[in-house]
Design a protein around this nucleic acid. Sequence first.
DNA 1: ATAAACCTTGGAGTAAACTCTAGGGTCAAG
DNA 2: CTTGACCCTAGAGTTTACTCCAAGGTTTAT
Lengths: 144, 144
Amino acid sequence: MYRIGELAKQYDINTDTLRYYEKEGLLVPSSIASNGYRIYSSADAKTLGVILRAKAIGFSLSDIKTLLSIEVDKANKECLDVKLVVDDKLAQVNAKIEELQTFQRSLKRLSDACCGGHESAQDCTILQALESESLTILSECHHD
Amino acid sequence: MYRIGELAKQYDINTDTLRYYEKEGLLVPSSIASNGYRIYSSADAKTLGVILRAKAIGFSLSDIKTLLSIEVDKANKECLDVKLVVDDKLAQVNAKIEELQTFQRSLKRLSDACCGGHESAQDCTILQALESESLTILSECHHD
DNA sequence: ATAAACCTTGGAGTAAACTCTAGGGTCAAG
DNA sequence: CTTGACCCTAGAGTTTACTCCAAGGTTTAT
Ligand SMILES: [Zn+2]
Ligand SMILES: [Zn+2]
Ligand SMILES: [Zn+2]
Ligand SMILES: [Zn+2]
């Protein structure tokens, strides 16, 4: 049995985060002391571990809520239910990676074309590319 | 010379977005008509083009503001100044990609271990991994 | 003269996941 | 009995990039 501060310390998070998770229905302390203090059981602590691990692999709190709701009703759920959540997230992550890789390629192309020296930005290929209709790099910065 | 609606239509954006860019100091119309209407010049339109291209390669509006401030003072700026902004963003993008790839690997590992069938989630390796201290996958779902 | 299609301002709402503040109760030690 | 370390609630603030709303002025066409 832990008070909010103890649990927070154990998992190196803010007590406000714990209250926030409660408000979001992710981790409701299993009892409340007569003085109003939240009391977390070891099962609660285990659940918090699940939440933090899920967060660490990219799940949103909303995803985690779904995962936890499956978890508590394991017996009536199928592997399919679980895998769908994971695959859905994986698809989102893949999509985001691709978007970022597009950014990465464009940025790298711009970076590579610029000399990065103390020459005047008047002839900077990066600025020229940004001004060109199609983000085209005409040449490398040479500044004659 | 364009009114706000014309410019917005030309670039397929919302008029509110243009007003927002103005509030943020990114694109201030070069004049205001006597009736209070914003009047954008072709130079303004060109700047909008730069903004949208920069956005399309991953720059935030704040980055773009920096880029535009260099652009207007090109003569007194160096290639270095420009390249720093690009390289900084590139570093951010790279970092984000790495984070997402970590997610991707973990998610794929989980996904691969789960049968995804109609078997009970009681023995689902995904749930087991999330509950295990170290996100370990003990075995593949076989459900005996 | 009146409707449709513009334009203006100021301010609120959205998502996500916290984080902080104010104002006040609780508890153990010295 | 007071100090310090806890705990409580309700609500506001943060970030980014819009998007929408209300209430009203302007223009153009019929
Ligand atoms: Zn150069
Ligand atoms: Zn350059
Ligand atoms: Zn299975
Ligand atoms: Zn499974």
